[in-house]
């Protein structure tokens, strides 16, 4: 196992992990507002198909990304209306959103099969070298010779980390997720905070889909996310609702996702199916530790999954 192998492995892990970065950040925002949205997979696929369609129509990378984020936000709007305004069960609504989004993408994608994003869009997402940083040995190729989506992932993690931890709206949001009644009493509009952050979360899931359909696999494939939205939901717990750890966790899971395939180069006498199972085993282990650990209750938004009734305050 030489250095070149590891550099290639981690470079690919960052690319695969970026699929998860946006979706995980999106789910963090939603859960911070107290809403568990299991529709991540659906919103990713909605973003993927709208982003792809927009790219065919406009050949503009930025409009395509915008379209994908709006599509994700639209999915989240349905969810927010049902769970916040009508106080429907969050789990059931999220699951229906996943089914709806998958069907939505298959339906709109019927005639896209075999098509590819326009050359201009494709080139826009070619790897870009970061001046200076890309020359660092080992770390340069892994982190700083990537496409714009990857860099956007770094930036968003830091921005959201600062937003959630060090700004008034971020702290208000935490209050909404922990104790909406208290937030309401303090004059914070619970409904507005929930809507805003669920929609922003949806937009980020849509961005995840756009990364898949515009940059990672720039031709149309049905069900392109293949279940990665669910991994993102688990990653939120794995990273304990921290945007900084979300970046690390997504890359770690990206690495675990591809490790099995890459290790086939060596004659290792361990079943490859074991490597395929590692991401899921890791998730279970983390769930166990998160439940047993002292931090219990301190990291999970206390009102997560609960509808807020002002009348019951």
């Amino acid at each position: 196992m030489d250095l070149a192998f590891l550099v290639d492995l981690f470079t690919a892990a960052v690319q695969v992990g970026t699929i998860l970065v946006f979706a995980t950040l999106g789910e963090i925002l939603s859960e911070k507002a107290g809403n568990l949205n299991l529709g991540v997979e659906g919103m990713m696929l909605m973003g993927a198909v709208i982003g792809f369609t927009t790219s065919l129509a406009t050949a503009s990378p930025l409009l395509s990304i915008l379209g994908a984020m709006l599509a994700g936000a639209f999915g989240a709007l349905i969810y927010a209306f049902l769970t916040v305004s009508l106080r429907a069960n969050q789990t059931v609504t999220g699951l229906s959103l996943t089914i709806f989004g998958t069907g939505f993408a298959s339906f709109l994608g019927q005639n896209l099969m075999g098509l590819r994003v326009p050359e201009a869009v494709n080139r826009f997402f070619d790897p870009v070298l970061v001046p200076g940083l890309s020359a660092i040995p080992v770390l340069g190729p892994i982190f700083f010779r990537q496409n714009l989506f990857v860099y956007l992932g770094y930036v968003l993690c830091v921005v959201l980390g600062i937003y959630l931890g060090h700004t008034r709206p971020g702290l208000n949001l935490a209050m909404v997720g922990e104790n909406p009644a208290a937030a309401d009493a303090a004059g914070i509009s619970v409904t507005r905070y929930k809507y805003t952050h669920i929609l922003l979360g949806g937009a980020l899931c849509g961005l995840s889909g756009a990364y898949l359909s515009l940059a990672y696999i720039p031709n149309w494939q049905e069900n392109v996310s293949a279940g990665r939205g669910w991994i993102a939901v688990a990653l939120v717990i794995f990273c304990a609702w921290s945007p900084y750890r979300a970046l690390f966790s997504a890359f770690l899971f990206g690495c675990l996702d591809i490790l099995g395939v890459r290790l086939q180069k060596f004659d290792i006498n361990i079943s490859q199916y074991f490597f395929d199972a590692i991401p899921y085993l890791a998730t279970i282990l983390i769930l166990i530790f998160a439940t047993l650990g002292k931090k219990k209750g301190r990291v999970t938004p206390a009102a997560l999954g609960l509808a807020y009734f002002r009348e019951e305050r």
């Binding site: 690919a12 293949a226 996702d257 591809i258 395939v261």
Partner: peptide, 24 residues
């Protein structure tokens, strides 16, 4: 050189297996 993906259909995983072969 052969790489197994253990799936008939997973666009991202198939791509990654190809990338690992190209890297070699």
């Amino acid at each position: 050189k052969v790489r197994w993906t253990h799936t008939w259909y997973d666009p991202a995983k198939e791509k990654e297996a190809a990338v690992s072969l190209l890297d070699e």
